[in-house]
């Protein structure tokens, strides 16, 4: 198996002294579907954002496809990010643009800056985007404005956008935390199937343990900015779960809490 991502000694401290990550080590192999679980405030979101450098880590290294990402240059950061898709809790779509445009945004990272500004998407990309929308069950919403969709539909657009990047890795930050149980199941299935079929490794933040156990090939438990568990779903004992969620037990099963 090839290693997609190698995180070593990742530390993030925010101004004011809050230590969000206290030295995380994590390896992601090709095709893995890893669930990162832990209570809110454990540092899950910071971990994902340090990987694609939406947040600048304080210490530690992140190597993607064997290449350490230390360069501060904008073009190498851009190349790096274009190969990593991201799915967000709040979908993060451009609400006033069409569904199709939102999916095509996934190609921007590969286009010349100017071609991107003027939306010169190739015919191939447009066909691929439409095919992808069919695949995620949004064939009737292609030309609708993104804000006309329901939450579950919006998230499927978000998934389409991430897949459109033809990434090696997808980072999903609490993709179902704002959704009802039914939409959650559809969204998780969509992420899972697409990643499996295309051999995309996926790192998904979840706080629902059941969901994590259902999909993940491996589970990583984070508590207070440190990794406290890393193993197969079978190895995750009840005891360990209680340890991870100690003091925040009510969050383990939280569904659609609506923030």
């Amino acid at each position: 198996m090839t290693t997609i991502l190698q995180v070593e000694g990742l530390v993030k401290s925010y101004a004011g002294g809050t230590l969000a990550l206290k030295g995380i080590d994590l390896t992601v192999e090709a095709g893995e579907f890893i669930a990162v679980i832990g209570p809110s405030g454990a540092g899950k979101s910071t971990l994902l954002r340090c990987i694609n450098r939406l947040i600048e880590p304080t210490e530690g290294t992140v190597a993607f496809l064997g290449e350490a990402m230390n360069s501060k240059s904008k073009s190498s950061l851009r190349r790096w990010r274009s190969q990593i898709g991201m799915i967000f809790q709040h979908y993060n779509l451009v609400n006033r643009s069409s569904v199709l445009e939102n999916v095509l945004h996934g190609r921007l990272g590969y286009m010349s800056p100017l071609a991107g500004v003027f939306s010169r998407y190739s015919e191939e990309d447009k066909q691929a985007a439409i095919a992808l929308l069919h695949k995620v069950g949004l064939e009737n919403e292609v030309f609708k404005r993104a804000d006309e969709l329901s939450g579950g539909q919006k998230q499927r657009v978000g998934i389409g956008r991430a897949i459109m990047q033809q990434p090696q890795l997808i980072l999903a930050d609490e993709p179902i935390a704002s959704l009802d149980p039914k939409s959650s199941a559809v969204v998780m299935d969509t992420i899972y199937e697409n990643c499996r079929e295309r051999g995309i490794a996926c790192l998904v933040n979840l706080h629902q343990v059941e969901v994590a156990k259902k999909y993940a090939t491996r589970i990583v438990g984070i508590k207070g900015g440190a990794k406290v568990f890393d193993g197969s779903p079978e190895e995750l004992t009840e005891e360990m779960i209680y340890n991870i969620y100690q003091g925040k037990e009510h969050e383990m099963h939280a569904q659609a809490a609506g923030e």
């Binding site: 851009r78 898709g85 967000f88 779509l93 945004h105 921007l108 990272g109 991107g116």
Partner: peptide
């Protein structure tokens, strides 16, 4: 949020302004 998503996909400054 939209800006963050485009940034994460590797879009440039100009592309983010235009599309997000």
């Amino acid at each position: 949020e939209a800006t963050e998503a485009l940034e994460a996909s590797g879009a440039t400054y100009g592309q983010i302004i235009k599309h997000a």
